[in-house]
Simulated assay, not measured.
Amino acid sequence: MSAPGGNWGFRTGVNDFWGEDHGRKTIGKTILVTGGTGFIGGAALRALADSEPGTNIRVLSRQPLPESLRTGEVLHVHGDLTDPSSLRGVCEGVSTVLHLASHVGRDPELCDVVNRHGTTALLADARRHGVSRVAYMSTTAVYGHGVHRGLTETGVNPLPVSPASRSRLFAEQAVRGFGGIVLRPHLVYGVGDVWFIPTLLRLLNRVPSWIQDGAARVSVVCVDMLGEVLSGLTRIPWRGGETYHVSHPRSTSFRSIVRTVCSTLRLDLPSRSLPVAEHREISRGMMPELTDHQHELLASDHWYDSSRIWRKVRQCPGPGFSSRFARAADWYRDLLPIG
């Protein structure tokens, strides 16, 4: 949830970086990453390091970088999204900002401080230093309640229901107004995931039943593929003010997800199926921390048209959940037993 500051003695303007034909790199680039020590940010840093050796990467965070991130191409910049004064100067010399830090808890004040005011302060520094390329990682949670089937980025007006998603929608609006772009993944899995699959595992442990036979279809994306998309965006021009869904283009059923998870982790499959309402009533008692909205995400269709982003970055999304999940099996296995 944090981000950083510093003062640098050089500058790379966006026009110099792209050159006149907007496709040819003319000088080295510097990328500022907020949230680089987190789940998605870490994947972005790995992808950047793999695809663009020699790129200058600044990671904005309150704490020193973990040993795994301390390389010659990664520079720690101290700062905090809760302290706007610490963000002054962090964008000097930067060609692209990947703003991947958010507070996703339930404290409204902290959500506003980090997501609203922190983003505003970061954009102000980007403006001061002539940085126009800012990409913000948001979430499909900004759409709020409802069944979503093949939803496009303009298919429905966002109606967020939580402090986190409301403040992230504000950050979206600020970024688009600035001329940046917004990315909205749905459910993200992979090494480092502490919400999607762990929540599903806890639910299966406490309420070992299918929800409506596991028929709900959802959009998912592997965090490593999300990192590749972010890395790809740093290498191409973009038009500001746009929003992109970022999930695998093929939706998958929760029945398929649960079967893959249980098979890989050698867990028993649910032995019965419950209607959505009955399952929710039982889960309220067995897992009170699960919100109505979170249960809805596991019980009803939530899949999104993500075709535009793959065309944009000219990448192949590769295999889906059933093939990729095994790569994170050790991570999830270490989280067992789920209490």
Rank of each mutant, 00 (worst) to 15 (best):
T234D: 12
V221G: 11
R217N: 06
L226E: 09
V258E: 03
C222A: 14
V207M: 10
P237S: 15
R217I: 04
L226R: 07
S263L: 00
N205L: 03
L204S: 07
T234V: 11
S209N: 10
V261L: 02
M225K: 14
G227K: 06
W210V: 03
A216C: 05
S263F: 02
A216Q: 06
W238L: 10
V207H: 01
I211C: 09
P270V: 02
V261F: 01
V229Q: 11
N205K: 12
L269P: 03
V229I: 13
R250Y: 04
A216H: 11
V246Q: 05
A216W: 03
R250H: 11
D213T: 05
T260H: 07
R255Y: 04
V207Y: 00
E228L: 15
G227T: 09
T243N: 02
S271E: 14
D224L: 13
S209R: 07
P249H: 05
V246P: 02
P237A: 13
S253I: 05
R235M: 12
I236K: 15
V207W: 00
R250D: 12
F254E: 03
S247F: 12
H245N: 15
S251Q: 11
M225P: 01
R250F: 04
V220R: 10
R272S: 14
A216S: 14
E228H: 13
V220T: 15
W210T: 03
W210L: 05
V223Q: 15
R239W: 03
G241T: 00
L226Y: 11
V258L: 08
L269G: 03
R206K: 12
R255L: 03
D224V: 12
T252H: 02
S219I: 13
G214H: 01
V258R: 00
Q212S: 15
R206M: 07
V261N: 02
T264I: 04
L204M: 15
I236L: 13
R235S: 09
W210Q: 01
S247A: 14
P249G: 09
L274D: 08
T260P: 01
W238G: 10
G241N: 03
M225H: 12
C262R: 08
H245K: 06
V223A: 15
L269A: 01
L230D: 10
A215W: 08
V229K: 04
P237Q: 13
A215H: 14
